[in-house]
């Protein structure tokens, strides 16, 4: 079996997503996130090209603008302001969680074998689009579960969102544009609010370790 362009792009986005898990340096995480989302943008354009759904191009452009260009730069700015460089104590060592992510890619391959692919986009009997989407979902969950810094939590949320978006795009002919745009706006607002919240956490707690936020402070 040869990988079609669609499948290759889907797998590329999944692999780049898993590479986010591999380091605790937040700046590297952000640039991996950028490339990971760029692969998803390329995939959206490609699906638009195959299915002749013109609105997917607009969605791709909006995703490029918001999730590839704006959000990582904004988070980078937040990082600089809040003076956090790396996620000090992850619950699981970064390399280990990356390998766990790679294994979850295999698990999602098995899980997705029952989900039929989109007519015309997938090859007969292939379901790598939903495999990639599920694996990205798992990656995001791993990121949120294993990291302590609030910034990693935001990143994990973004990765999960990417997974859901990819699932929608690969299984349907894209959601209505209004829904996509609404989601994008929501993500944007969510990230900005949590970014600002991060400042306040940093100011009042002098760290951004979410595992200690439950401790009471006078």
């Amino acid at each position: 079996m040869q990988l079609s362009t669609f499948e290759a792009l889907a797998m590329l986005s999944a692999v780049l997503g898993i590479l986010i898990l591999g380091t605790t340096l937040l700046r590297t995480n952000l640039s991996f996130y950028r490339f990971h989302t760029l692969a998803i943008v390329a995939l959206t354009v490609w699906i638009g090209h195959i299915t002749k759904e013109a609105h997917l191009y607009i969605v791709a452009a909006a995703v490029l603008l918001v999730k590839v260009l704006f959000i990582p730069s904004f988070l980078g700015w937040v990082m600089k302001k809040a003076e956090v460089g790396s996620d000090k104590q992850a619950f699981i060592a970064a390399p280990l969680s990356m390998h766990l992510g790679a294994i979850m890619l295999g698990v999602s391959y098995l899980l997705s074998s029952r989900i039929p692919g989109l007519e015309g986009v997938h090859q007969e009997g292939s379901h790598l689009g939903s495999t990639a989407a599920m694996s990205i979902l798992f990656t995001g969950v791993l990121l949120m579960l294993t990291r302590r810094a609030a910034l990693s939590q935001i990143l994990g949320f973004l990765v999960i969102e990417n997974g859901i978006y990819l699932f929608a795009v690969t299984q349907t002919h894209g959601m209505p544009m209004l829904v996509e745009m609404g989601l994008l706006l929501e993500v944007l607002v969510g990230v900005m609010i949590s970014g600002l919240l991060l400042f306040n956490i940093k100011k009042s707690f002098e760290h951004i370790d979410v595992s200690q936020l439950t401790d009471l402070k006078d």
Binding site: I18, G22, T23, A94, P95, H99, A102, I103, L105
Partner: peptide, 20 residues
């Protein structure tokens, strides 16, 4: 080890592909 883990991860990915 974190850097080398990337090489190992690539190997695991290719293992998955070789399996599937």
């Amino acid at each position: 080890p974190e850097f080398i883990a990337y090489a190992v991860a690539m190997a695991i990915f290719s293992y998955l592909i070789a399996l599937s």
